[in-house]
Write a protein that binds this DNA or RNA. Structure first.
Lengths: 121, 121
DNA sequence: CAGAATCCTCTGCGATACTG
DNA sequence: CAGTATCGCAGAGGATTCTG
């Protein structure tokens, strides 16, 4: 399997059932990483804002609690999508940003957005 | 906003914060539609198999229960991603397939797959 | 400011049994 | 065959309080 395969090649592979959802399909791990109510929005927000403080991030995610934001960020960090930069100041100062791996999700958002513009009223 | 915008235009819009995750971003509704443990796999399976019977679909989704498959399919149908074709026979015969709207998700899968091949060991 | 610690609620999901 | 009808539970997620 080639990571440079074209869309047409991809579709062909899918139709042939070479890529299965359960087996060697690389989509599943990503879906697992993005599971949870807030993960996607957090990543999206980091795409928009670049580097951002915990408090600011919380403000842009209407409704999220400290607990959920913290645990989501920890998991995203563990999965290598987000990195945490800690400034040793008082009061504390922490910033979050996407890793290369996380930023590479932008084409996924792009595909979703194009779908949305076409199929959502 | 233009549905024909290029990836570069899209990234620019994102950076400018024109598309927000909470507001006019068309990604959120899609994410909602795809929420749940099995939705994505179901759609993927329908991509692979084309048109498929309930029982066959269940077999290809290892571990899913009748209840979950039914309720997931109902919701996907309600959201216009899947259509149900009922043959009036005894014993019952029902087939499921993607709508145009559902098939249009393939580019999203493609983007995810490309990400996976590059960033998953 | 950026969280950790608790407690609590709700629901997504599974297991099982039944039916037209 | 293609589902419904119940029941039960783990765990995701919310609310609140506390702290270095």
């Amino acid at each position: 399997m080639d990571q440079d395969m074209s869309y047409e090649e991809y579709v062909e592979q899918v139709r042939k059932g070479i890529l299965t959802s359960s087996g060697n399909c690389p989509v599943t791990p990503l879906l697992v990483m993005l599971q949870g109510k807030w993960k996607f929005q957090i990543i999206y927000e980091l795409c928009v804002k670049g580097q951002i403080r915990f408090g600011e991030l919380k403000k842009s995610l209407a409704g999220i609690t400290n607990t959920m934001l913290t645990s989501s960020l920890r998991e995203l960090e563990r999965d290598g999508l987000v990195s945490r930069v800690q400034f040793n100041e008082i009061p504390p100062h922490v910033e979050y940003l996407l890793t290369k791996r996380g930023e590479a999700l932008l084409p996924v958002f792009y595909a979703m957005t194009k779908w949305g513009f076409e199929y959502i009223p």
